[in-house]
Design a protein around this nucleic acid. Structure first.
Length: 829
RNA sequence: GCGGGCGUGGCGGAACUGGUAGACGCACCGGACUUAAAAUCCGUUGGGCCGAACGGCUCGUGGGGGUUCGAUUCCCCCCGCCCGCACCA
């Protein structure tokens, strides 16, 4: 008997698949279509274990669907624009494009080495003008439809490097290179009107029944539809302020009004008040992330004016506050400290009154004690005409009075904000707009697309190379012909990934996609990717698809019919004494291998290039082969759960591949039945199919181990040979190379990749005997093997006769008997 | 701070819709084969107690409480870890 030479078989069969174009998909195939897609990778340099996990799962499903007779579109491409390429340019002096294409070549080779059933003829890279030119055309279409606009918005500003920083480049409030404290700075930027689609993006979640509930819930909360009220307060100086509140019921608990630093009232105050100006400047310190803003100390500046309470007439102090956001609601809030935690923190700090207006059970005391706001339900108290009402009724009552008296109205607000797509960077899709002093904003005529990036750029100083390029931005206005300037911002890379799945389905040269061809494949039947994309990428892609439908380009509402979010592959992080991140292979037993110096072991985090805690699959594939690597990735860990990387077990996967080969290679002719084995075989065919369909590969793996063990133990028979021959096809989606080798050796027709999934004899799926648990007072005391489907009283009689039951009951009759047919009897004594 | 998720033997995990907790794999230990090793095969393995043994009893699914004949599963509170928070992709 021979040993399976994995490395030789891998190369041979990958060559065969390539030569025969086995996985090239046909648009005109008569077979039912299925689109299986994994989130395309950023070409960071090497694939890591997270990629292997993601693409192996998708591959098993794609191969399985092919075996079920479907025409499967399973493409691959590159999310190729992004910051790391510019960082590489700064550090190594290599052009971002060159660096990116080198990485693509390296990673493509690694993916091919794993034997994925991908249609490489549809490969695309988003940094290719042949891709981003079409993206520019779509951007112009959305612009023409009024879905694109420009406004001011804050960015992280590094005052030393004089450059915009990404949130990731702000470390502890400081610029990552300069170390200077970052500030918020306003820039004119491009936005997409995703909020126009807020309602349908929310409603559409209901139709996504093949999405995980948790992702739908996260998107629902992110969109954040809430009913609230806009209330006008008259100011003591004769002015007026509109505040927004989701809790108008608590209006009698209001003890102050707060406005954002950007609010016109704050801006006006700053004009004549140096202290107010200084406070607003202080609010501009720090970065723009929500986590940073919401965890910083609540600070306020008390203005001279007061706001008149619409019911009591009380004069409420007006503050500028650093926790109020101009982007949400009206940029002004009424502070109800007893029933909102942020307001309470603020009130305690500035010694403001804290009246209770919602009863917490029995607690109705007018002056609220403690430092934990009560946000729960209850009856209104200390609130005049609202007393005794519940929260919802009180809300409606206040809205009704405000509307009747003309100082307020009920509104719907969304947490979702419009999508800012401007990036002050080089390595992205140029925004196809020209600014003309005479004509204003002028779209680049479509005939002039693509607007390509200039090659001759430098990265030796911070800032956007497009902006300082000597000639690139200087063009003539397409409208009037006078000298004008190109937009030098590029598009957010999330735009690139918002339509790549459409381009995979249809890629004509002269337009982004063909409507009918794309609609033939879409929506994606099964989309697979990391849970970290649960909100942003998936929401943007949903929006983009709906926006295309809105302008008549594509009649698809939801791009991804089925979604599976895999857990992340995580690993410890390591840091050298001087703060450098170290890769796992640079560390052994708590010391840095190169220097012998001790290291610091950090948190367990998702594998990422920036923290260097990635593990390269190449050595594993080279040692154990593609099948063992794939099998190992599918084993043990449930795919939706995070997986802390460990190599323990790869040996077992490799042993399993060799066990398979011993079965395949040792199948000598024999005769006779083996009913038990045949039953096990059919149960496994059905079980594995169900598990693959549900993407529960770890369970499919366990079932296959059981079947293999059963075959190994079985005596030679025709049934055993049949089981071995069928096993080849069952494992084919997971370990395709050894399956092809065995299929060929056994004289199978064509490739096992093209073979049909084995049929199941459903009559064999149920056992005719069942083991029934016998409990006394809920504790297992015995088990009985009985025929399936036995009547309740017969089961009860059998249970009462079980030796352990007789011993424990000592002749007493049970008080109560619970019989669950085919499963269990519980005798309550 | 806000939103979401997860927590089961030494380890990864399984357990249908509330019904025998620990399938399957790893690791470990013992045995077979071998001159030897590798490979392979067989067997043991949650903790504690009783027993020569067959076996029996008992505790046990992050912690505390609750519902139920019965809870890893449902409810409440708490702890820990992970992900996201709009310029990382």
């Amino acid at each position: 008997m021979s040993r399976f030479n994995a490395l030789k078989a891998d190369a041979a069969w990958q060559q065969v698949w390539d030569d025969r174009q086995t996985f090239a998909v046909r648009d005109d195939s008569p077979r039912p279509k299925s689109y299986v897609l994994e989130m395309f990778p950023y070409p960071s340099g090497k694939i890591h274990m997270g990629h292997v996990r993601n693409y192996t799962m998708g591959d098993v499903l794609a191969r399985f669907r092919r075996m079920q007779g479907m025409e499967v579109l399973h493409p691959m491409g590159w999310d190729a624009f992004g910051m790391p390429a510019e960082n590489a340019a700064m550090e190594k002096g290599v052009h971002p494009g060159e660096w990116t294409y080198q990485n693509i070549a390296a990673m493509k080779a690694q993916l091919k080495r794993l034997g994925f059933a991908l249609d490489w003829s549809r490969e695309l890279a988003t940094c290719d003008p042949a891709y981003y030119g079409h993206e520019q055309a779509l951007f112009l279409d959305l612009h023409a439809a009024g879905l694109v606009y420009r406004r001011e918005s804050a960015v992280n500003w590094d005052p030393v490097d004089m450059t915009v920083l990404a949130n990731e480049q702000v470390i502890d409030g400081r610029g990552w290179r300069s170390g200077a404290p970052v500030e918020k700075r306003k820039l004119n930027q491009w936005f997409l009107r995703i909020t126009d689609f807020a309602d349908e993006l929310l409603a559409g979640l209901d139709s996504l029944d093949k999405w995980p509930d948790k992702v739908r819930l996260m998107q629902e909360n992110w969109i954040g539809k809430s009913r609230g009220m806009q209330l006008g307060f008259t100011l003591s100086d004769g002015g007026h302020v509109e505040v927004f509140s989701t809790r108008p019921d608590t209006i009698f608990g209001a003890s102050f009004v707060a406005v954002a630093a950007d609010h016109p009232i704050a801006q006006a105050a700053a004009a004549g008040d140096a202290a107010a100006e200084a406070f607003i400047a202080q609010c501009k310190r720090g970065g723009t992330t929500a986590a940073e803003i919401e965890t910083q100390e609540k600070l306020g500046y008390r203005l001279g004016v007061t706001a008149r309470h619409p019911f009591t007439g009380a004069a409420l102090p007006v503050f500028i506050a650093n926790f109020v956001l101009m982007e949400y609601g009206t940029g002004a809030v009424m502070g109800v400290p007893a029933h909102d935690q942020r307001d309470l923190d603020f009130a305690r700090k500035y010694a403001l009154p804290v009246p209770r207006v919602v009863a917490d059970g029995e607690r109705t005391d007018a002056v609220f004690e403690g430092d934990e706001a009560y946000t729960g339900a209850g009856r209104l108290v200390n609130s005049q005409f609202l007393d005794g009402l519940d929260v919802d009724t009180a809300k409606s009552e206040v809205i009704a009075r405000g509307e009747a008296e003309g100082w307020g109205r009920g509104t719907t607000v969304w947490r979702l904000r419009d999508w800012g797509v401007s990036r002050q960077r080089y390595w992205g899709t140029p925004i196809p707009i020209i600014h003309c002093d005479a004509c204003g904003v002028v779209p680049v005529p479509k005939a002039q697309l693509p607007v390509t990036l200039p090659e001759d750029v430098t990265f030796d100083i911070p800032g956007n190379p497009l902006d300082r390029h000597p000639s690139w931005k200087h063009v003539d206005c397409p409208a009037c012909g006078k000298p004008a300037r190109r937009e030098t911002d590029t598009l957010d890379t999330f735009v690139d990934s918002s339509w790549y799945f459409i381009r995979f389905a249809s890629q004509p040269a002269d337009r982004p996609f063909d409507k009918a061809a794309a609609e033939a494949w879409l929506p994606v039947a099964q989309y697979i990717g990391g849970v970290e994309h649960a909100i942003l990428h998936l929401l943007y892609a949903r929006f983009w698809t709906r926006a295309l439908r809105h302008i008549g380009k594509l009649d698809v509402a939801e791009p991804f019919a089925g979604l599976f979010t895999q857990g992340m592959v995580t690993h410890e992080t390591y840091k050298a004494q001087d703060g450098r991140w170290l890769a796992p292979e640079e560390v052994r037993d708590g010391i840095e291998v190169a220097s012998g110096a001790p290291i610091t072991i950090g948190r367990v985090e998702k594998m990422s290039k920036s923290k260097k805690n990635t593990v390269d699959p190449a050595p594993i594939v080279d040692q154990y082969g593609a099948d063992a690597t794939r099998w190992f990735m599918l084993s043990d860990s449930p795919p939706e759960r995070d997986l802390q990387w460990s190599e323990a077990g790869i040996e077992g996967a490799w042993r399993f591949v060799q066990r398979l080969w011993r079965l395949f290679d040792g199948n000598a002719p024999a005769a006779g039945d083996d009913a038990a084995l045949t039953r096990k075989l059919h149960q496994t065919i059905a079980g594995v199919a169900a598990d693959i369909e549900a993407l529960q590969f770890n369970k499919a793996v366990a079932k296959l181990y059981e079947l293999v063990a059963a075959i190994e133990k079985a005596a030679p028979s025709a049934a055993r040979n049949e089981a071995v021959a069928t096993l080849v096809r069952i494992v084919a989606p997971m370990t395709p190379h050894i399956a092809e080798e065995a299929w060929a050796a056994m004289g199978g027709e064509g490739l096992v990749a093209d073979a049909a999934w084995p049929d199941v004899d459903t009559a064999l799926l149920v056992e005719d005997e069942v083991t029934i648990a016998i409990q006394v007072n809920g504790k297992l005391r015995d088990t009985l093997v009985l025929p399936r489907g036995m009547a309740k009283d017969a089961i009860e009689a059998a249970a009462l006769g079980a030796p352990n039951v007789v011993r424990i009951l000592e002749g007493r009759a049970p008080r109560k008997v619970i019989v669950v047919p085919d499963r269990l009897v519980n005798l309550v004594a």
